[in-house]
Design a protein around this nucleic acid. Sequence first.
DNA 1: TAGATTGTTAATCGATTAACAATC
DNA 2: TAGATTGTTAATCGATTAACAATC
Lengths: 221, 221
Amino acid sequence: MDKDISQAVIGRLPRYLRYLGELKDKNVERISSSELSAMMKVTASQIRQDLNNFGGFGQQGYGYNVDFLYSEISKILGLEKQYNFVIIGAGNLGKALGGYLNFEKRGFILKGVFDQNPKLYGTMVRDVKVMPMEDLPSFIKENDIDIAVLTIPKEGAVLVSKVLVENGIKAIWNFAHVDLDVPENVQVENVHLSDSLMKLSYNISSYNKNKEGSEGGEAFV
Amino acid sequence: MDKDISQAVIGRLPRYLRYLGELKDKNVERISSSELSAMMKVTASQIRQDLNNFGGFGQQGYGYNVDFLYSEISKILGLEKQYNFVIIGAGNLGKALGGYLNFEKRGFILKGVFDQNPKLYGTMVRDVKVMPMEDLPSFIKENDIDIAVLTIPKEGAVLVSKVLVENGIKAIWNFAHVDLDVPENVQVENVHLSDSLMKLSYNISSYNKNKEGSEGGEAFV
DNA sequence: TAGATTGTTAATCGATTAACAATC
DNA sequence: TAGATTGTTAATCGATTAACAATC
């Protein structure tokens, strides 16, 4: 139905939402694309183009109403919905995400936490007890789980993702260092932390290299 | 010196490295761009273009030597270097990253962990004691810290990033939900977890919408 | 040598930016 | 109404893909 929106555009929406949230907190009523552009360091043109993928949210001569735009972007991102989720892997990362979620007071509801380490069974993550992996398939079905957060090592992640798919999971938030192979009706969002760290490493190292090459020659823009 | 390499290219290098690492583990000696292309689901053309930004690593009629290419990409990413880092924020996320790093056996060395909660002072994160925030500035200088990992809430993160910059940090791996404003000689890599989750939310919700629009009409490619 | 596959140039595609008419 | 600012079309820029000559 919707014409396909590029992932580049989708990727920018959460950032718009964040800035709009801050404006809301400051009780700013309206904002123009050029003001927002200055705050966010993107072009006003891009902001208008991005938003107009979804409809005309502004008004000529006025700009955008902050509350309205905030709520429209929330809707676009599907944040007014409720999602039930489970965490698979009760290590520090799993615990961290358990605490995080209910993320920003949005509708992400932690229903269960699973681990294959018997020592952890029954220990609490937030308000939920850690359960054995064997219970995962039935739990997903009985509790109408939408999202699984994968915070286990990659070998396990590949196996578990199959189980998840077989039991009708809608989406996987994947922190394992591996690409999952799932059918196209299952959404996957990868957070590859080590990839991110390597990018940082590259940028440190390439910045230093360029500095050597042009000693003292700071960019003057 | 180097012509500017686009961040799109940099962003793909860690994934190449990951697949090459797996091939190494399987004792595969050489691989062609088209074989790698099939494994990674990117075009062979893109692989060759990406690599040729940095030099000719292959050989006509042969392909690429896996070990050699792996080590070249490692060098490009600056992974043969050692980096000293500190974690700021000793919560679950900080602890998770402390455990992670020494990341994949690479040269990221945890030197210190800081928190503003006195109850945590002296508790251990991996092999390092949690220290009070006040000690941060001198610690950075005395221990030659390259990277700070920011796992504290956004208000604190903005303040701490200023302290870090003043004390000569080279890079910040930022997990706080805010854009940091630092000079161009300080590299920042953001991991905005909630942005990532929102993308997932969008994709769930837009997939379902499109499904309604064309009931039963699965893509058949 | 013949076959394979790179490195690289050229063509295409998509995303970003600029410009401006429409309109509040 | 005049001024401001959007929505949208057109122009530009950059990234991806295709093609092929070079060469191992």
